[in-house]
Amino acid sequence: MVANAERGEIDIVLGKKRRVLRPSYEAVMTIETLTGRSLRELAQMANAMTMPIATMAVVVAELIRAGAADDDIGGKQGEPEVWGKLIYEAGMPAIAARLTVVLTAALTGGATISGELKPVATTKGIATATGD
């Protein structure tokens, strides 16, 4: 599956497989509940690279679940512990950078409830986020 930037998705490579992170409202609500942290705190932690690996695993698991095809995640693949091991293997700074992008889009109101990016206002002579 390939990330669709127009939906607010970004891709991430974990376990030698490209996966999609999608900042849907449901994913964000679940992440906040499971981590006990606000979206703002999570975005700041990702940006500062202070997010614990267990928290990263929860965030990644839920964002992947929101962006995955129904058959892409099953059984243990959807469990945060599995994602934590893959994050450790991939390197936490690289994953934190990807999480910063996706969590900031959700935090700043740049994404709709379903995780789609909102259109950026265009000004003559200035490129938009969609390249128009």
Rank of each mutant, 00 (worst) to 15 (best):
N4R: 13
I64H: 15
S24F: 05
M92F: 04
A43W: 11
L21P: 09
A69M: 05
T104H: 14
K85W: 08
T30L: 08
E79I: 14
V13P: 00
T122Q: 09
E62G: 05
L117S: 09
A94K: 13
G15T: 00
G115W: 09
G78R: 15
R22H: 05
E81S: 15
R40G: 02
I87K: 01
G74Y: 15
W83E: 12
G110E: 11
L34H: 08
M1L: 12
I10Y: 01
P52S: 10
R65K: 13
A3W: 05
A48E: 15
G78C: 08
G78D: 13
G91N: 05
A96L: 01
G131A: 07
Q77T: 02
G78A: 15
E32F: 06
L34G: 00
E81C: 03
R98W: 02
P52K: 06
R98Q: 15
G67H: 12
A43T: 08
Q77F: 10
S114D: 12
V20I: 05
E81L: 15
A129H: 00
T123M: 09
A129R: 07
E6T: 11
V20G: 04
V28Q: 05
Q77H: 10
T33M: 14
T112F: 05
E26Q: 12
L86Y: 14
A96F: 04
A54H: 04
A61R: 09
R7N: 09
I87V: 09
M1N: 09
P80D: 09
A106L: 02
S38P: 13
A121V: 11
G74V: 11
V60I: 08
A46V: 09
D11S: 14
T122G: 01
N4P: 01
G91S: 07
M45Y: 07
A54G: 12
M45G: 13
A61E: 10
Y25Q: 15
I10M: 01
I87Y: 06
I95N: 11
V2H: 06
